[in-house]
Design a binder for these strands. Structure first.
Lengths: 155, 155
DNA sequence: TATTATTAGTTTAATGTTGAGATATTTAAT
DNA sequence: ATTAAATATCTCAACATTAAACTAATAATA
């Protein structure tokens, strides 16, 4: 069986190591927090929508899509599923009928108000393995990597 | 419209900032590399499988699942789709008939041998915005976060 | 040997995800 | 006013993803 060559330059080794560990770190944190969400019968996307509504107030679907970095087609389905459980409700904008405002319902508000602190606690716990200065440095480096997105959207 | 309180402790603010930026960084890098894969009609998971086979040689499905951090049920579908395109082939193990070895085909080998350098180049490019020492530090910090996974699997 | 785990893989139901195309609505331009 | 462009949402097909239930094969044990 012929397999690929494994000779990389130092530059490649260094970048690949950073890339691989960045991906694993994100996957592993997401894996653990999504287990908490599963206890509340919520997916990551559903939590994302509820959390945005909780902190930013009612928004339309395209705004929600931009906030959680998903397509509008996807948001339609996520909202459908949240609406089935009466956690959010749709309200057509009367001035501009293209827009649909999404509101938290009473039970949606109560749920996210309960779930969010659990997730916050888990995040603090995840990061507590790093010193404060290390958390700040991780944030700084990741911010630089993440900001490259905009370069791409411009093109 | 009542929205959630936004008063966090310094510890919470610090952890949340690191968490958010880690997630955004991973999403944004994945977004850009997956666009390259799309040019080759490959999904991230399909690439993951081909790349592991390319570098590690033939493996069974449960080993592939462990390598790309997905369930065996998911691997069944990913392999199905790769097999439809004749990029891999299944071979039942004759000694232990529970196992199915997955092999790269000739065309699968040629494809991944072409795609991998493109992805490598993109990764080097992504990371090149950081200095060498910063890439090493990012790798170190992410590795610590990622290693917490094992604590969880023990429980 | 017969029974009981354990393991590898598949299937199913539910949800997510994207990109492309369709619909409805609004705005801009002629 | 009509037409054209832009915008918001929805629909659809294809693939991804998981958990849980299931089949088949092997290993362990009484």
């Amino acid at each position: 069986m012929i397999t690929g060559v494994a000779s990389y330059s130092d530059t490649e080794k260094r970048a690949l190591s950073a890339y691989t560990k960045l991906m694993r770190a994100a996957e592993s944190v997401t894996g653990r927090t999504s287990r908490i969400l599963a206890d509340f019968n919520l997916t990551v996307s559903q939590f994302g929508v509820l959390e945005v509504l909780f902190h930013k107030g009612s928004l339309c679907q395209s705004e929600l899509a931009a906030k959680i970095l998903k397509t509008t087609g996807n948001i339609t389905m996520v909202i459908d599923n949240l609406e089935k459980r009466s956690l959010v409700r749709r309200e057509r904008d009367l001035d501009d009928r293209r827009f649909i405002a999404i509101h938290l319902t009473e039970s949606g508000y109560l749920l996210i108000a309960q779930v969010f602190p659990s997730i916050m606690e888990a995040i603090v716990n995840e990061m507590s393995i790093l010193q404060e200065s290390e958390q700040d440095e991780l944030a700084r480096l990741c911010r630089i990597i993440g900001l490259q997105e905009e370069r791409c959207l411009e093109s």
